[in-house]
């Protein structure tokens, strides 16, 4: 604070530079004052928002906490998860076949795959759901037999064969397959054509090339958008409320129509969706790592691995023998 003040930092920095070995960069970090201003403003707004909701006399917190783990809600959550998992798995398989059909040289297959994507991507999902839900109105009976004759093998009521759950699952799966097909096709197109040629020159069949060479490489590109699709799917299950599938949102509306606590139950449902979508990013991370192998960047340690390393250094976990890392170069 005296007259010597201006020179003091300079000389200290000079000392730091002088004391450090030549190849260590001891830099004073750049300052970002505006970052702090923006962060403060945003942080305060968020605090105010939460506070205003928390102190709002019209929102009953007891209701929120009471219903968060209500058995009916939890069952609804489980059903949403089940629908998401099945719809994503089946639609991905369908999507792979559609993508293969669209890339095939056979013009008939090409056309059918294109038609499929055109129809299912071109109409609103909500309408498709209602359509499958009302299939019973369109065809009262589903009959297996010889068309245009009286011969039948069996005949059932459409509503017994296609209950709301199946109709909803069907709607989400068929719709998702159209989107997944395009993502998968994009992934397959991103693989260098030289890969197909190399496989062909080794005598690999087109099918073997597809499953062992093309798809594993395409998967690396496909996973991030498919992670997105899975999150969308989870949220889209709430649309099944229009055909009364008892997933979490339907259950919540049923409960709130009785106790008239609409906002509280929406908060309950939102908490669950947020929780589930957060959890979903974990498998995505590990899938990306797995399919990114051979691709330098993916070799970084996992968060769990880093945690383990931290604990090992702190002496909590037992040390592991050093891993032999691949080395560069090495000409004989």
């Amino acid at each position: 604070m005296s007259s010597a003040a201006p020179t003091a930092p300079t000389s200290r920095r000079a000392a730091a530079v002088a004391s450090a070995p030549d190849d260590d960069v001891v830099a004073i970090p750049l300052r970002h004052p505006w970052r702090w201003v923006v962060a403060t403003v945003l942080g305060l707004s968020l605090v105010w928002l939460i506070y205003s909701m928390w102190t709002n006399p019209n929102i009953s917190h007891q209701t929120v906490t009471k219903y968060l783990f209500n058995p009916r809600i939890v069952n609804g959550v489980l059903l949403s998860i089940l629908i998401t998992v099945i719809a994503m798995l089946v639609s991905t398989v369908l999507g792979v076949f559609l993508a293969i059909m669209r890339l095939a040289h056979n013009p008939v297959m090409n056309f059918f795959a294109w038609l499929y994507v055109w129809v299912f991507r071109g109409t609103p999902l909500l309408i498709q759901i209602v359509f499958w839900g009302y299939l019973g109105l369109l065809y009262q009976q589903i009959t297996l037999g010889v068309p245009f004759t009286d011969f039948t093998v069996f005949s059932v009521d459409t509503n017994t064969l296609v209950p709301a759950f199946t109709a909803g699952l069907l709607a989400l799966t068929l719709n998702q397959a159209a989107y997944s097909a395009e993502i998968i096709r994009g992934g397959m197109l991103s693989v260098d054509p030289g890969q197909t040629e190399a496989a062909a020159s080794l005598g690999m069949s087109p099918a073997y090339t597809l499953f062992k060479v093309i798809l594993p490489q395409a998967t690396r590109v496909i996973i991030p958008p498919m992670g997105n699709e899975t999150i969308s799917m989870l949220k889209q299950t709430s649309l099944l409320s229009v055909i009364a599938v008892l997933e979490v949102y339907t259950v919540a509306t049923q409960i709130s129509s009785q106790n008239l606590r609409q906002v509280e139950l929406l908060l309950v449902v939102s908490c669950w969706y947020l929780f589930l979508t957060s959890v979903l990013s974990v498998p995505q991370y590990y899938l990306e790592r797995h399919f990114g192998r051979g691709n330098g960047a993916a070799q970084a340690p996992t968060p769990l691995g880093r945690l383990a390393a931290l604990l090992r250094r702190a002496g909590v976990l037992k040390a592991r023998p050093a891993v032999v890392r691949p080395t560069e170069g090495g000409q004989p």
Binding site: D192, E197, A198, G294
Partner: peptide, 9 residues
């Protein structure tokens, strides 16, 4: 091939 075309995975 000129560009090797090894299978990267």
């Amino acid at each position: 091939f000129q560009r090797f075309n090894l299978f990267p995975h």
